Simulated assay, not measured.
Amino acid sequence: MKILFIDLTTSLESFQDLENKGRGGMVSSLYILPNVLSQLGHECYVMSDAKSCGETINGVRWINESQYDWLDKQSFDFMVLNRQLYGDAFSWIKSKHRVLWVHDMVHGGWITKPEIAKMLSATVFMSQYSVETWKAYYKTIGRHFVIPNGVDKELFKPLNKTTTSMIYFSAPNRGLEYLPMIFHSVKEKIPDVSCIAFSNMKSLHPNESGESDKFEWIYQLVRDSGIVLHDVIDQKSLSTFIGASGLMIKPSDYAETCSNSTLQSLSCGTPVITSKVGADKEWVQDKYNGRICDHILNDGPLFILEMCRAIIDTLSNDREHERMIKNAPKTKNLFTWQEIGEKWNRMLNRVY
């Protein structure tokens, strides 16, 4: 099938940036999935706002607005709209089917004209949480499928661990400011605990760089606490840090629909300490492959206290911690990208 993916919010200089730079999960998956579908025999294109375009090693062609004249002459079997409908869902582009690929919590801005949603043949959600919240917001979400993101299990795999090491790798608005308080409290009970963080709003989400300055005080707070803070790095380098960590800490109140950081941590055999906010609870089972805190950040010190206790209890119980480490890669619904490509392939054939 001939498939066109569309995302005009990547802020990429070149599509090849995704091969050697850290970016958010939505843009990373936009690079990976078309490559996987291309390997399955589909003819895939990605229309984006990247300034420099070209073709991937798997034959996926990246184009931008300079090639609108070429697009106007094409006809596609599927158009996959990444995150939103962009007003009229590019009604001028000829495509037999349109599919919305939902990455975020429900938001009125993703579908500004509800009548345009009637053009959709299907919507792909990444979790049941995403389905439930969208159903609660809109009267109907039509035909839909649940297909999460995948993970490169050959890259994200368990390594020799320093069990008392903790890692945070996400945007700073996922609870980075609470990390110093948590780290200080845990260190009082477990003196040899360490923590490393990879976080930078401007690097992860350049299109939101206008907000980046407001996080500077958080970065300094983290550095002053003794936590080693780095800018985001490429996926290959990051995987070595995750694989060697004893715990992934996620003190977030951001309702993610499918967190790549959670999937990658579990694949690395790194238990995840998180909250019940969002979709993490569909992968993380309390005391099986991590801990789920019942309280949330709106509960104030109760959340911080519960998270600290969960971390201390886990690091103080070698047997339980080791069991979580072994269970993490066995997590249900933790799929490779090849398996996710097959799920998309079956979905496309059913809709077609």
Rank of each mutant, 00 (worst) to 15 (best):
213 D>V: 01
198 F>W: 06
219 Y>C: 05
225 S>K: 09
212 S>R: 13
231 D>H: 07
221 L>C: 05
221 L>W: 00
232 V>Y: 12
215 F>R: 06
214 K>T: 15
222 V>A: 00
207 N>E: 08
217 W>G: 11
216 E>T: 12
214 K>P: 00
215 F>G: 09
198 F>V: 05
216 E>A: 11
212 S>G: 12
231 D>Y: 03
200 N>E: 11
232 V>K: 03
231 D>M: 07
201 M>N: 12
225 S>R: 02
205 H>N: 03
218 I>E: 04
226 G>Q: 10
233 I>V: 15
204 L>N: 01
230 H>G: 04
211 E>S: 13
228 V>W: 02
222 V>S: 02
206 P>C: 11
215 F>L: 10
203 S>M: 00
219 Y>D: 07
210 G>P: 03
230 H>N: 13
225 S>H: 05
228 V>R: 13
223 R>I: 04
200 N>Y: 05
215 F>S: 07
230 H>P: 03
222 V>K: 00
227 I>T: 01
216 E>D: 15
221 L>A: 12
219 Y>T: 05
223 R>V: 06
228 V>K: 14
225 S>V: 04
199 S>H: 03
218 I>N: 07
212 S>V: 11
207 N>M: 07
209 S>V: 06
207 N>D: 10
210 G>T: 01
232 V>M: 09
203 S>C: 00
211 E>A: 13
213 D>H: 09
200 N>I: 12
231 D>C: 10
228 V>I: 14
212 S>D: 14
218 I>M: 12
227 I>N: 04
209 S>P: 00
226 G>C: 10
230 H>V: 07
230 H>W: 10
220 Q>I: 01
221 L>M: 12
215 F>D: 07
214 K>F: 08
209 S>Q: 09
212 S>F: 14
208 E>R: 00
223 R>Y: 00
221 L>N: 12
198 F>K: 08
223 R>E: 13
226 G>K: 10
212 S>K: 15
231 D>R: 01
233 I>P: 02
205 H>W: 08
212 S>Y: 10
201 M>L: 15
198 F>H: 09
214 K>Y: 11
226 G>I: 14
219 Y>F: 05
221 L>D: 12
215 F>A: 06
211 E>Y: 13
199 S>K: 02
200 N>S: 14
232 V>W: 10
210 G>Y: 04
217 W>C: 13
222 V>R: 00
229 L>R: 04
216 E>I: 10
232 V>T: 15
207 N>C: 07
224 D>E: 14
205 H>G: 02
214 K>D: 10
202 K>T: 11
204 L>T: 06
204 L>Q: 05
209 S>M: 04
227 I>Q: 01
218 I>Y: 09
199 S>W: 07
207 N>L: 02
207 N>I: 04
224 D>A: 13
210 G>N: 07
233 I>Y: 03
215 F>E: 08
210 G>Q: 06
227 I>W: 08
200 N>H: 13
224 D>M: 07
210 G>M: 06
225 S>G: 10
209 S>W: 01
212 S>H: 14
201 M>H: 14
206 P>M: 09
219 Y>K: 11
218 I>K: 14
226 G>H: 08
201 M>E: 14
209 S>C: 01
209 S>F: 02
233 I>E: 04
213 D>I: 01
207 N>P: 00
218 I>F: 14
220 Q>K: 15
228 V>G: 00
206 P>V: 01
216 E>N: 13
227 I>G: 01
201 M>I: 09
225 S>P: 09
231 D>F: 08
